[in-house]
Design a protein around this nucleic acid. Structure first.
Lengths: 196, 196
DNA sequence: GTCTATAATCAGATAGAC
DNA sequence: GTCTATCTGATTATAGAC
């Protein structure tokens, strides 16, 4: 088996994994601007040039960091839904998104770097499709009369958790508690088979 | 009148305004990482050192760029609401937010820089308060029975426009059309005094 | 008040040694 | 396949001239 043209080292190299870990930590803790070859290497206890050996460019490094997390997220969603596909659980999964900082950095990066934008868009579509399937099942199972199409409910739900998550990170809190209470009450009614 | 300790040049200096304009353009077009003293100065047709003369640090420059836009946004909201305070108009105002890239960059910056986070949080709270006042009036004027508290409606509305705006920038589109149609239909009913 | 010369540091990337 | 020496250029910031 030949190595891919982009990856120079082997995929299971120890140094390579250490660099990915270090890059991810730096990204979350200090933002993408702090993810430089020198700082990544220093945190991994390696020489800066190794970054360019294992990942040709910094963009390639970013893409690999993203893919690793994206794959893990998709797998985690599938596993969680298989365990409990209820409406309440789906909401909890979405509302408790811990990787807000991670996502934010990549969105900002994607806004100006083509390779990363493509990666992020592909992941977002796959994640939404998986969520939609789960939400459609959950709504059907609740037996509540359908007044809101599942895809609309999903976009609304994503929107709420996104604003609240983002604003929380910035110290903005107006309306959060009221909105969360409202959503949870709505979900409780739906889960009981009542209309909204 | 003495100058503030932070601002060295006069506030109405021509060079100072040119630097602010250049910084804002770069920020939107290429992201905050592209806003370096050299590039800002080059775009303004000035020497890089002038950035540090008019704004002691790059963070100070970012804060000034943000304040200028934030003040303009708040004034624009007030003016627009005074002209037409209807539910439909409020929605259009929010949905048509053109400054998505601008906001995104500052949110990313704020996530890791204290001074900018404080600035952004203060602005976000003020903007939300202004929107809430307008929305409360609009809902009351519509005469529709209140099933959703205004603050909850506002957070929901902000969430929808935020996800859709963000995803649009990334090339993600699933569910956008359906959701926008749903929201606009709901607004039409409320504006006609009907319940949701 | 306005601007420049200069310092000190850090960036991404490649060519080549083992 | 793994890693290092090295090149070239950019970055923020200050000290001081006009």
């Amino acid at each position: 088996m030949t190595t891919s043209p982009r990856r120079i080292g082997t995929a299971d190299s120890k140094s390579r994994a250490q660099l990915l870990d270090a890059a991810e930590q730096l990204l979350v803790e200090e933002g993408y601007a702090a993810v430089t070859s020198r700082r990544v290497a220093a945190r991994a206890g390696l020489k800066p040039q190794l970054v360019h050996y294992y990942f040709r460019t910094m963009d390639d490094l970013f893409v690999e960091v993203f893919r690793r997390q994206a794959d893990a997220n998709l797998a985690a969603l599938d596993a969680a839904v298989a365990k409990d596909g209820s409406l309440r659980h789906l909401w909890r999964l979405n509302a408790g998104t811990s990787g807000a900082a991670f996502t934010l950095e990549f969105v900002a990066l994607a806004n100006h770097r083509k390779a990363i934008r493509a990666e992020l868009a592909s992941y977002a579509e796959r994640y939404r499709a998986a969520q939609l399937a789960a939400l459609t099942n959950a709504l059907r199972a609740s037996g509540a009369p359908e007044r809101v199409p599942p895809i609309v409910a999903l976009v609304l739900m994503t929107g709420v958790t996104q604003v609240i998550g983002l604003e929380q990170a910035l110290g903005v809190t107006s309306g959060h508690d009221e909105t969360l209470a409202f959503v949870e009450q709505a979900i409780a009614r739906l889960d009981a088979g009542e209309p909204l």
